[in-house]
Design a protein around this nucleic acid. Sequence first.
DNA 1: CAGTATCCCTGGAGATACTG
DNA 2: CAGTATCTCCAGGGATACTG
Lengths: 117, 117
Amino acid sequence: MRKEKDEPYCAVDFAFQRIGGKYRGRILWYLHLHQVLRYGELKRLLKGITTKMLTQTLRELEQDEMVNRKVYLEVPPKVEYSLTANAKELIPLINELREWADRRIMENPRAGTKMPC
Amino acid sequence: MRKEKDEPYCAVDFAFQRIGGKYRGRILWYLHLHQVLRYGELKRLLKGITTKMLTQTLRELEQDEMVNRKVYLEVPPKVEYSLTANAKELIPLINELREWADRRIMENPRAGTKMPC
DNA sequence: CAGTATCCCTGGAGATACTG
DNA sequence: CAGTATCTCCAGGGATACTG
């Protein structure tokens, strides 16, 4: 049974509930980079994610109108995921967050190297 | 004992680890709105937060160089929190996330009203 | 291929009491 | 005032097996 999120206290809260969580950011970013991805392709990109978490996160993103899910009635099955218009509005922001993070990573002597996405 | 965060997989991950979490976004936003806030003021703004979570989150933000902690050696004690330069770079982005969220909230017939922060 | 269905465990978070 | 210190709980997430 799907748990309801806590009522967000304010818009900042609301935003972070939609993009926060362990995999949401990367899923949105990969869908942006590739335009459209199949379930298995996403699973390969999100190395180590379990099917349970991937399916669950995709379903939540779908309910939040952040991703489209397109099912092809073929054998073997084929399902494609893509960003909705709502989510696309966020891409420039996520990109700037990514650049901010890259700067923090470069500043840090320990890390010293950019992390590819 | 402080648990280490999972190694972020990429910069997008890194960014969300720094601004994600239940209260981080709002703390950064409130510190932006008020410039400087005392512990008790933050606690009042984050209605319902426990001292444990507030202290813990502030310490993490401090370690991540997102907030400054200034202690006044007075009785009664006085501690002031403010944003670091690193965190201030994020404010325009958080503000745009907030505006994005406001648009989503207004679109939704159920909600229909902006949420103040 | 794209998922379900279970079982299980941990750590994020709440409640409460106490202190320099 | 600005925190510590404990105890507790539960849901987010992992591992594994199975299926249309």
